[in-house]
Design a protein around this nucleic acid. Structure first.
Lengths: 111, 111
DNA sequence: ATTGACACCTAGGAAAGTCAGGTATATATG
DNA sequence: CATATATACCTGACTTTCCTAGGTGTCAAT
């Protein structure tokens, strides 16, 4: 797109993931479920989208990962926000608000 | 991303262009200026983004184009919304609102 | 015993945006 | 007059992101 700040539109998924992980350590499969639940089924994150995204966020140092057992006694990779990730999340949220406002400005212009 | 409705995040540019063209016939170069102005410099549409996008929208039957003279006596390609385009704009605006709300739901969740 | 939910992964392709180039005309500046 | 800047259009190569469509393995329920 086109934005001075190149982090959205593509980056909305990153934002959503980071925000959900910020709620507490959680594994990938559950992240997609949470996103779907909270968004009232609006967002449905495909696995082929989810896992590469998680690896991306981990590589950038925003998420840390650790294998642990779930409640149901299964192995799963639990992600948590790093300090860097928390900082980045703050920035992304602010950026999203700006972008959202900018779009609103244009959509609001009278014909 | 991930949305049930596949038309955004990528589609925000299309939305902005369609909305600006809906204000009245306008040529490409001016579209990018208008978007920048109205968004208070937030969006800066690169030419390499703009022109392919306009061709895309034209090919999909949402925009019509016609060569005309500008005020300053130069040739320029003026775009206007087709009926189909107007309908699509309505739909896109509604979709954007939904998506925006869905993101807001997630960003609003308390830690 | 098989199905379905859980939980992870990747490869290939399509779409969109950026960067960096290009053409041409009109106006302003030295 | 020459050159620079703004206007106005365009494209190709590259990158990133997402989706589709596969794959593995475990656990619970039928």
């Amino acid at each position: 797109m086109t934005q001075s700040k190149p982090e959205f539109l593509k980056g909305a998924l990153d934002l959503l993931i980071l925000k959900v992980v910020a709620l507490g350590p959680i594994h990938g499969y559950a992240i997609s479920q949470r996103i779907q639940q909270i968004s009232r089924d609006y967002f449905q994150v495909q696995q082929g989208t989810l896992y590469p995204a998680l690896h991306r966020l981990e590589n950038r140092g925003w998420l840390g990962a650790e294998w642990r057992d779930t409640d149901t006694g299964r192995e799963a990779k639990f992600y948590s926000l790093t300090k860097k990730g928390r900082k980045h999340l703050e920035a992304e949220m602010a950026s999203w608000a700006q972008m959202s406002n900018a779009v609103a400005l244009i959509l609001r212009t009278a014909e």
